[in-house]
Simulated assay, not measured.
Amino acid sequence: MTGEEIVLGPLPKGITPAGEGKVWNVLGHRYSLKAASESSFAFETYDPPGTGVPPHVHPTQDEHIHVLEGVFTLYLDGQWETAGPGDTVRMPKGLPHAYYNRGEGITRGLFWVSPAGRLAQLFDRLHDLTDPAEVVRLSALHDVEFLPPGAVEGA
Rank of each mutant, 00 (worst) to 15 (best):
G105L: 09
E134Y: 09
T51D: 04
R137N: 06
L76Q: 14
V26R: 00
P149T: 08
G50I: 06
P59L: 03
A140S: 14
P115S: 14
W112T: 02
G3T: 03
H58K: 02
H142S: 10
L74E: 07
P17I: 09
I15G: 01
I6H: 07
V71D: 07
T2K: 14
D62A: 02
K13E: 03
G105W: 10
W80A: 02
H29L: 06
E5S: 11
T73Y: 00
R108F: 06
S37C: 09
G70H: 13
Y99C: 08
L95S: 06
H29T: 05
R90E: 11
V26M: 04
V23M: 08
M1F: 02
P49C: 13
H142V: 01
G19I: 07
T45Y: 00
R90N: 05
E153H: 09
P92N: 14
A42Y: 08
L122N: 09
H29Q: 15
P55T: 05
A151N: 06
D128E: 13
D131I: 08
I106R: 06
H66L: 05
T45S: 07
M91A: 15
D87W: 08
K93V: 10
V23E: 06
F111A: 15
P54R: 10
V135G: 11
V89R: 12
G28H: 00
G9N: 07
D87H: 09
T16N: 00
H58C: 12
S32R: 05
P96A: 04
P48K: 15
S114F: 09
H58T: 15
L141H: 05
F123R: 10
L74S: 07
N101L: 03
Y75R: 12
A140W: 05
E104K: 04
V113G: 12
P149G: 13
W24G: 01
K22W: 04
E81M: 04
P49T: 15
Q79G: 05
H127M: 13
T130Q: 04
L119K: 15
K34C: 10
Y31N: 04
V53Q: 15
E44Q: 12
R108E: 09
A151L: 14
A83Q: 13
P85F: 01
G117W: 03
G103A: 01
E145Q: 07
L122V: 07
R137T: 10
G109W: 13
S139L: 14
G28I: 00
P12T: 01
Y31M: 09
A83W: 11
G28P: 04
T88A: 14
Y100G: 04
G150V: 02
L141D: 14
E81Y: 08
T45R: 02
G150Q: 14
W80E: 05
L27R: 06
G50R: 01
Y100F: 12
W24E: 02
N101M: 15
F111T: 07
T73H: 14
R118K: 15
H56S: 13
N101V: 04
V136W: 12
I106W: 12
A151R: 08
M91K: 08
T51C: 13
R102I: 02
T130A: 01
S139E: 11
R118F: 13
L27N: 14
H97M: 00
L129W: 12
